[in-house]
Design a protein around this nucleic acid. Structure first.
Length: 428
RNA sequence: GGAGAGGUGGCCGAGUGGCCGAAGGCAACGGUUUGCUAAACCGUCGUAGGGACAAAAUCUCUACCGAGGGUUCAAAUCCCUCCCUCUCCGCCA
């Protein structure tokens, strides 16, 4: 959501800054409704002022035992006018709001121009790629052979794009969740939260999933609740409609949740394995901070996610997304991509973004600068979040990078304490 | 699911049709006093949208007493719908 005043006065700037991203926005309608709303607001306020004065006059006359019929009749008319104007105002506001909520965020200046993922910019690489004396297998073959992944039964009980993990596979997923949360809470300064995974419409609107991307979400049939596609949604909305004092900032949360995505329109993509599922687990990092600190926070938060991969000794690279590949709400995004030997490429395992005030405006999350002094003007916080990490994809990376010629899989050193001390997954 | 109670400013809490954006208290902030602390006293003390001013200070208008409708010249106050919280019963983890 953009500042309506800024939008009104700088429509052309916004429009060109959005470039390709804003192609489907009906700019003329935005401008027209913007002006209409302003005019109607002024009219309505003037009329209400008149009504107030008139009503006070009636009250005064009543007390003075003077006749008030004339004033009452006049005010009755003003009242009718107000009803008319306010009705039109409401319509204009609703229409404008609906359009405004569909305008994506403006990219930060440092974001490269581009139309798709091929124009993302690699920022850095970490780790050395593993070499194999045999053709590395895809994780689903490894997992099924070991008896820790079962896609056939998952399909039976739920359908395509679901997974069943069992035995050491289930333990591995749980170990990773534990490990990530422990690291972020004890070393990186995040507070752990365990939020609802079903949320209401307002919450989904706050972070930008609604109104534009309802088709990507699972929705309950009898209630207006949605399954969260990421913990970003409930956790960012923790402070919706709140004013935080600056000395509380930055506020950092980490949350493990399952995530649910319809994956509409991705038929045929990553149909096998754990890469793209309707339900997956993720540990998320969410930060509320000031505008000044937000970009330093983005670097730091990305680093926190990288630490997990480093500790697990998984090679990865960091890319800065170009304007055409960024999500709707983001101003700047780094993707962390982990190396997958079977695919001979890096694949996304984390996405870290600064949303600037875009979500804060939608969710009305403010802060009061200057150590809580009353006279300081409030302003919107900046929100950030990143995966730290997508758990299923981390399992994928471990299975593939740590696979052995005999089909077993070594357990990364850092994870052993979380795996009951075992150092290897063998056939079960 | 059944029955009942309730939602007012950061918090507590008054307010049943007009002079109420809302008494009083607490907290907070500024000051006076004080050897220091405390206390006392004085003052300030919600959010947002518009207008005036070149801008800030400031002034002014409008909205907001859970949300949305309605009645009325006039609604925190009356009516309707919804949401949320609490208590009891039932059910369940």
């Amino acid at each position: 959501m953009h500042d309506p005043r800024y939008l009104r006065d700088n429509l052309d700037t916004v429009r060109s800054a959005l470039g390709k991203r804003g192609q489907d926005v009906p700019w003329d309608a935005v401008q027209k409704l913007s002006e209409e709303r302003r005019a109607l607001t002024t009219q309505a306020e003037q009329l209400r002022h008149e009504l107030k004065k008139g009503s006070d006059e009636v009250a005064r006359r009543r007390r003075a035992k003077e006749p008030a019929e004339e004033a009452i009749a006049a005010m009755k008319q003003v009242g009718d006018q107000i009803k008319d104007i306010e009705g039109r105002l409401r319509e204009a506001e609703e229409a404008l709001n609906d359009l405004a909520l569909r305008i994506p965020n403006l990219p930060h200046q440092t974001v490269p121009q581009g139309t798709d993922a091929t124009q993302n910019v690699e920022v850095r690489r970490w780790g050395s790629l593993p070499s194999f004396s045999f053709p590395p297998k895809p994780h689903w073959e490894i997992g099924e052979a070991l008896g820790i992944l079962d896609f056939d039964r998952a399909a039976k009980i739920a359908g395509a794009r679901f997974a069943l993990m069992s035995g050491t596979g289930a333990r591995l997923e749980r170990a990773l969740i534990d490990y990530m949360l422990d690291l972020h809470t004890s070393r990186h300064g995040y507070r752990e939260v365990l939020p609802p995974v079903m949320v209401n419409r307002q919450t989904m609107t706050g972070t930008g999933q609604l109104p534009k991307f309802e088709d990507d979400l699972f929705r309950l049939r009898d209630e207006d609740w949605f399954l969260i596609p990421t913990a970003e949604v409930p956790v960012t909305n923790l402070h919706r409609e709140e004013i935080l004092s600056e000395d509380r900032l930055p506020i950092r949360y980490t949350a493990y949740t399952p995530c649910f995505r319809r994956e509409a329109g991705s038929y045929g993509k990553d149909t096998r394995g754990l890469i793209r599922l309707h339900q997956f687990n993720k540990v998320e990092l969410v930060v509320f901070t000031t505008p000044e600190q937000s970009y330093a926070e983005l670097e730091q938060l990305t680093g926190h996610a990288e630490t997990i991969l480093q500790n697990l000794q998984l090679p990865y690279r960091v890319v800065m997304l170009c304007t055409g590949d960024m999500g709707f709400s983001a101003a700047k995004t780094y993707d962390i991509e982990v190396w997958l030997p079977s695919q001979n490429q890096y694949r996304e395992i984390s996405s870290c973004s600064n949303f600037e005030s875009f979500q804060a405006r939608r969710a009305n999350i403010k802060y009061r600068p200057g150590g809580g002094k009353k006279d300081a003007k409030t302003d919107f916080v900046y929100t950030l979040n990143g995966s730290g990490l997508a758990v299923g994809r981390t399992v994928v990376a471990i299975l593939e990078n740590y696979q052995q010629p005999d089909g077993s899989v070594l357990i990364p050193e850092a994870l052993k304490p979380y795996m009951g001390g075992r150092d290897k997954i063998t056939k079960e």
